[in-house]
Design a protein around this nucleic acid. Structure first.
Lengths: 266, 266
DNA sequence: CCTTGATCGGGTACGTTGTACCCAGTAATA
DNA sequence: TATTACTGGGTACAACGTACCCGATCAAGG
């Protein structure tokens, strides 16, 4: 096959590892570990970023770290759990997050959308990972917390806030899936690699289909114009319309400091 | 592993097979084929619907049809191409599509969204298939053509029409991905199967995280209320807002019969 | 200091996949 | 009837995840 994949290992083990930093460490007998979980996760992410998810297997990760394949299993229960850790780890902040204090709801949500899109562009393999059950690790939670800042000055129910975040996030993800048709790092000269070749292959069939009269509306499209859309454009269009749609509600609930954290505790 | 997956085989072979009905058939020497591509695709879809994508392998498909594993390769070049065929085949109309003639743009798009969501619910494995390159087969094209009916009475550019369809489709897909956390058909009593158990495992860690003070906004959420969202609700919220957002534009471009097909050919 | 036993590195090997290759049986054509 | 393209499908191998094992290591107790 080309690019097998899955997500989510045993949640018990995944959770343990995700929150490992918060567990106390005591000294133990035996040799010092040669690796850390961080090193393995970092190497695995580098590998996936560079060579695609298809190249992510335990032997390759081990080779990346110059250790034996089975040594990885001293730190990580299996590949599924490793993927869980990778997914959370790539959500780590990159340092150029803005301060939400001076931003209104629209700015926060727009930042959320655009940073999510660049995130997918940087780690396209994430879109291939089968995120059945959401593994909420520290980094993912951090992102959620950041997003909630959009509603600091609004009197919205928790449910509505989550609904809006889900909408923005889901929109970007859905569009990214359609467009970030990541060209497999063309190490192997497989059947077809580039996007151009791909369309070239389909074209004659599509052409004949258009001429068949079975797709009257499609055949009237100016193909050149119709498909001239980048993921950025698509996200911008969708988000603009969506934000315009919720704007009345956001304005109606504007109440400075309504939800900002830390008020009632001081 | 648990649920390996991928999509897209050799596009040349996939395209040939997708459009095979339009190719002429001539009589040939040798024994009559015992199977058809349709039978294989149907069996594979039944298998995936029933047992999940994890159970979809060539040996199981062959067993389903009571033939030898390798016989499948007489009809289908490989698993990747079979998946391409499956994806297109499930897009076949189910007979209860409404007539778009009496529907306005909003009704068409709303139907598109809701039918897409029920589609994902019926074939959750589709969400796991890695749809890198879109394989545009006859059924997928038919769906696109249907969607374009929303703009029959509107004077929109092709590009804008595609943008809107992409938005609706992407939104539903993105949300479906977050929510249709398909519970693996629990044939194997694996580590954790049900959604409840899953949350039960995460809860203590989340609890501790909330208490850590690192996620001030998250920890102020009423968890019960905040996550009480179904995919239907989420889609409805997002779509309502989005449609409200594009409504002015749609009204501004209302021009009965502007794009309906077949006018200029009569 | 030496013993003990938990821990570490990692080699070997097996089960599950996709599928290349091969051979024997079959049926339209010459 | 002979030819030959085509069919069913068995065997076998490569890639992968990982169970299991052995020997090396080193904190703690004597």
């Amino acid at each position: 096959m080309a690019t097998p994949q899955t997500g989510a290992g045993d949640p018990v083990r995944s959770s343990e590892l995700l929150w490992r930093a918060f567990e106390p460490q005591h000294t133990r007998p035996g040799p010092k570990p040669r690796l850390t979980v961080e090193q393995i996760v970092t190497a695995a992410i580098a590998l996936a970023d560079r060579d695609g998810l298809g190249a992510l297997n335990m032997r390759n990760v081990a080779a990346e770290l110059d250790v034996g394949t089975m040594s990885l299993y001293r730190y990580v229960p299996g590949k599924g759990e490793l993927l869980d850790l990778m997914v959370d780890a790539v959500n780590a902040p990159d340092g150029d997050e803005p301060d939400t204090a001076g931003m209104d709801w629209r700015e926060v949500l727009e930042y959320l959308a655009s940073s999510t899109l660049t995130f997918y562009a940087a780690h396209p393999w994430i879109l291939e990972v089968n995120q059945k059950r959401p593994v909420l690790g520290p980094q993912s939670l951090r992102g959620l917390d950041f997003a909630l800042a959009a509603f600091d000055d609004h009197d919205l129910s928790d449910r509505e806030a989550i609904l809006i975040i889900t909408a923005v996030f889901g929109t970007v993800t859905g569009i990214a899936l359609s467009y970030l048709i990541q060209d497999v790092p063309a190490d192997q000269g497989g059947p077809v690699s580039t996007e151009e070749e791909w369309w070239e292959v389909q074209l004659p069939y599509l052409q004949r289909a258009m001429e068949s009269g079975r797709f009257p509306r499609m055949s009237r499209l100016d193909q050149e114009d119709a498909w001239n859309v980048t993921p950025e454009t698509a996200v911008r269009h969708t988000l603009d319309a969506y934000l315009a749609g919720i704007a009345p509600r956001m304005e109606a609930t504007y109440r400075p400091g309504a939800r900002s954290p830390g008020r009632d505790a001081t």
